[in-house]
Design a protein around this nucleic acid. Structure first.
Length: 564
RNA sequence: CGGGACAUAGCACAGCUUGGUAGUGCGCUUGCUUCGGGAGCAAGAGGUCGCGUGUUCAAAUCACGUUGUCCCGACCA
């Protein structure tokens, strides 16, 4: 592309309504533009990057034997009613009515439609396995879009679905996708971890997430410094080392006026965190429970949800807390409560600790396990940095932040049973089809790549995803020899199937250099006064030094750099 | 959904307290000079100050409402 007379602009300053580095760089480089909260336009440069990312994924999917299809985005609401997910997904779904008043939704995910497509193909075990996928726009009405392309309300997703006769078959299909995903992310130049994750709304047997490691990720990745353990914090198990109990001391009330917060207790009463507990009232599928963890631990709601196999887990309203504890918020405790107490496993090893007294402005000191009744002990806290690794029992846990760029699910027979997708096996028996589902967000990949590949001047795209591989900068467009040579190189590179951009704008050299740096083109050829010596300059975006190359050797030189 | 902030030119912002001609920097246009890392000088173009109602002789400025955006929290595939 020649820049003169084309759609190309950059901004010199950050915009104020982008809250992430990648969002700002993508906006400033003219790749994307926000249209509404969490909704973006992809402009020419950005769309090229997106298409290159899609191309990588498409190639890897096709290599795995999957077939591409395209589903509608506009879907009758009743399809989600049938699968039982309408209520589950709830207000995250954009819904609308047609002219006859029939309710439709904009598809937030497509398990149901793919299952319907599979119904046409599957009669017997001979029709299995297969894998179909699409690139489709998904619509999810996020409560809080943020971080540029990372959490948005309209986005393209590559979603794939595998259909197998049994769990062994699913295992094979799942491994194929795992491999295709690793290949894809490797080619994009992403630094990522594969972590165990919650199955969430999708349900099913197992879920693993591909998490790009960055500073601004929304997810906390739990890693071991000794073995290969990797998990999303949502599902990371805690291993508790039992401690010896101390000799019991006398239980007493402690007057703590207006001190409902843990921090104030530490500051004012000199009680160590490990000697305190916190009790929170949760409403789990409509019933109230008192959830108790050590005061320096955090309650893990995903673990609670799994423990109860619950649909909804929410903190109780303040009014409910006051009613159920007969005290101000902040003084709930397990002693003499009518609520069922769910205590974290770590509580088992505590002795002579502090709890809320269920009485405004009072706590109880020197409490022991025998002072109250625990309905269930369970692992309900978040793992912490420095904890023992649950896998190898040797290493220590460290955290890092991640952006979820892909996930793979073993769905099992959940959807096949709900919507009736069966096949006849060799013994003429009807069985449910075993499904897997696999997603990648190309837009998130784009943002994650920028988060990982940038410097003070702008984006540093890895070669395979760069909007253009080579930029030719003409230093002085008034010098005919420079223009001629630049145009000639441009034509030759195009013939050689290299994506090349020619900056022939009548701008000062600095402006062009800065723009090409900002948009992150990997190789720059500078055509300037050195042509008098029969040379041009070549500079790689990710290196500092400029190299002088003879004009007749520059094509080979550039090719060798691109194929490194 | 709860709490907070903001909305003035393509972008970033000032002006508002104390009502009276709408400003600055970058970007854009033209001319001259300059020309290898975001040039200088000069002359210009560009805004019904988010929208609505009210107060007032007079509203970017005050009041009320409304919409949008952002932040913190809740929620989240």
């Amino acid at each position: 592309m020649k820049l003169k007379n084309s759609y190309f602009y950059t901004l010199r300053e950050n915009v104020k309504d982008e809250d992430s580095l990648s969002g700002n760089l993508l906006v400033r480089s003219g790749m994307i533009k926000k249209n509404s909260s969490g909704i973006y336009m992809y402009l020419p440069l950005g769309y090229r990057v997106l298409k290159k990312i899609e191309k990588i994924i498409r190639e890897e999917m096709d290599n795995s034997g999957a077939q591409e299809v395209l589903m509608p985005a506009l879907i009758p609401e009743e399809i989600y009613e049938q699968s039982g997910r309408r209520a589950l997904i709830g207000s995250s779904m954009f819904s609308l009515k047609d002219r006859f008043g029939k309710p439709f939704v904009l598809g937030p995910t497509h398990e149901e439609l793919f299952l319907m497509a599979a119904q046409s193909n599957v009669k017997s075990y001979k029709d299995l396995p297969f894998n179909i996928y699409q690139f489709q726009t998904k619509f999810r009405d996020e409560p809080r879009p943020r971080f540029g392309l990372i959490r948005v309300r309209e986005f393209i997703m590559k979603d794939a679905y595998s259909f197998d006769a049994d769990l062994d078959g699913l295992e094979v299909s799942y491994r194929k996708m795992d491999k295709a995903y690793r290949n894809s992310f490797d080619r994009m130049g992403l630094d990522y971890k594969v972590v165990r994750a919650d199955t969430g709304v999708m349900g099913g047997l197992l879920s693993e997430e591909f998490q790009a490691v960055t500073d601004i990720g929304e997810d906390t990745l739990v890693l071991c410094d000794h073995c290969d353990y990797a998990s999303n914090i949502e599902v990371a198990e805690c291993v508790e080392t039992p401690l010896e109990l101390e000799d019991p001391m006398t239980l007493e009330e402690l007057y703590t006026p207006n001190v409902g917060k843990i921090k104030d207790l530490v500051d004012n009463y000199n009680i160590p965190l490990e000697k305190m507990t916190k009790s929170m009232i949760y409403k789990i599928d409509g019933e109230f429970y008192l959830i108790m963890v050590r005061s320096d631990d955090e309650i893990n709601e995903v673990k609670l949800q799994k423990l109860f196999n619950a649909q909804s887990v929410v903190l109780a309203e303040n009014d409910d807390v006051v009613r159920l504890t007969n005290a101000k918020v902040g003084f709930a405790g397990p002693v003499n409560t009518t609520l069922k107490v769910i205590a974290d496993l770590r509580i088992k090893s505590m002795s002579n600790f502090l709890v809320g007294a269920n009485k405004s402005d009072y706590h109880l000191k020197n409490v022991k396990l025998s002072d109250f009744k625990v309905h269930t002990f369970a692992d309900i806290r978040n793992i912490k940095e420095g904890d023992v690794c649950p896998k190898c029992n040797e290493g220590r846990i460290t955290f890092s932040k991640g952006i979820e760029i892909g996930n793979i699910f073993k769905l099992g027979d959940k959807y096949a049973k709900a919507l009736g997708l069966n096949y006849l096996d060799k013994n003429n028996q009807l069985n449910p089809v075993i499904m897997g589902s696999y997603g990648i967000g190309p837009g998130r990949c784009m943002a994650a790549i920028v988060e990982q590949h940038h410097d003070d001047y702008g984006i540093v795209w890895p070669k395979e995803v760069a909007p253009y591989q080579v930029a030719i900068v003409v230093i002085n467009t008034k010098v005919e020899a420079q223009n001629d040579l630049a145009n000639s190189l441009y034509t030759q590179l195009q013939k050689a199937k290299v994506d090349v951009i020619l900056d022939d704008r009548d701008e000062r050299a600095g402006v062009k250099f800065n723009d090409m740096d900002l948009i992150g083109v990997p190789v720059r050829i500078t055509v300037g006064k050195t042509i008098e010596n029969g040379q041009v300059e070549v500079k790689l975006r990710n290196e500092k030094d400029v190299q002088l190359v003879n004009i007749d050797e520059v094509l080979d030189f550039v090719n060798s750099k691109l194929n490194d």
